[in-house]
């Protein structure tokens, strides 16, 4: 701030006015701070509302769920709903399925997307702009609109057209079904076309473009190849975008039911199990219980990612600053 200017002015003024300038400055600063704190508190409440709501419902005993005199904090705490829901969705199995599928898919996607992002950011090859246009296209097209043909690609997987090519000679196209195998999720992820892959390529490209070129040039002069430069120089420097993409991708895979339903509907992941809760409980007439179970199910579903986020939050927020998406 222009503190010196203020000081100069203050010396020229008489004591009474000096006080008034200081107090005005203080008051306006205090007012801004107060309004800001108030706004942030209010909006935080809106953001946290569903979480509070889930917590509040999940920890109530069944008798207090519809009790209008219970506001937010239940009179007695009970973890009955949570325990029952965990049994119903076979929590340990569902959790391990979820962790395995979303973590593996995320790591595969991270690898290819960062490679592609680097290629788009640093190299000038023929058709680069066209291909990058295609990346943007994949972001724009809703997945639901290509879901059916994509399913048929997975169901009749022909080894990247090789099977079809053989089919031209033998009369019968060679194909295998990846449906209901983990590969149905992993293969698109490995090839950078998993859940929101285009977005991650974009993120990587932008942050690589913001990195100084000098380091790479130095590496080339010292005799590093392109791939070595990438693994030794670029990847360690790209920790920030990697973390951002990792967290986003993991969360989206974790909460996803669309891809799972389409390609791997036998996988009992947490999100699938919670999604199927309504069907499982269709025969139950205990409305309160269904209600409590759904909230508890949501809580159980997001708790692992939430915990992970809480641990990584500090690095994540800093990384977002550093990613410098331009």
């Amino acid at each position: 701030m222009d503190l010196q200017l203020i000081r100069q002015r203050l010396q020229a003024l008489d004591p009474r006015e000096r006080i008034s300038i200081w107090t005005m400055k203080k008051i306006s600063r205090g007012a801004v701070g107060f309004i800001r704190a108030y706004l942030i508190l209010c909006l935080s409440f809106v953001v946290l509302y569903p979480l509070f709501y889930m917590l509040s419902i999940s920890f109530r005993p069944n008798t207090q769920i519809m009790d209008p005199s219970v506001i937010w904090i239940p009179r007695t705490f009970s973890i009955q709903s949570i325990v029952e829901v965990m049994e119903l969705i076979e929590f340990p199995k569902a959790l391990s399925n979820s962790v395995f599928l979303s973590l593996a898919a995320t790591l595969l996607q991270l690898m290819t997307c960062s490679l592609a992002g680097y290629g788009f950011a640093r190299f000038r090859f023929r058709g680069r702009n066209l291909l990058f246009g295609f990346v943007l296209l994949t972001i724009l097209v809703p997945m639901q609109s290509v879901a059916i043909p994509m399913y048929s690609q997975i169901r009749f997987f022909d080894y990247f057209f090789v099977g079809r090519l053989i089919g031209l000679f033998t009369g019968e196209a060679l194909s295998t079904s990846l449906y209901n195998t983990p590969w149905a999720l992993f293969l698109p992820a490995l090839l950078g076309n998993g859940l929101r892959g285009g977005l991650y390529i974009y993120v990587f490209r932008q942050s690589y473009m913001g990195m100084p070129k000098d380091l790479e040039d130095a590496a080339y002069i010292d005799g590093c190849g392109f791939i070595q430069t990438y693994t030794r120089i670029i990847m360690p420097l790209a920790r920030a975008p990697m973390l951002v993409v990792f967290i986003l991708s993991l969360i989206w895979y974790w909460n996803d039911v669309f891809l799972n339903n389409l390609f791997y509907s036998t996988a009992e992941t947490l999100s699938m199990a919670v999604d199927g809760l309504a069907v499982k409980m269709a025969l139950s007439h205990d409305f309160y219980q269904i209600f409590a179970y759904q909230q508890a199910g949501c809580l159980v579903l997001i708790a692992p990612v939430l915990l992970m986020y809480l641990f990584l939050q500090k690095y994540f927020i800093r990384s977002v600053d550093r990613t410098g998406l331009k």
Partner: peptide
């Protein structure tokens, strides 16, 4: 060529799955 190489895995996936 290497630039193209970096993009190739995505390109295959794009052609096949998109």
């Amino acid at each position: 060529w290497f630039g193209f190489l970096f993009v190739v895995p995505w390109l295959i996936g794009f052609a096949y799955f998109f």
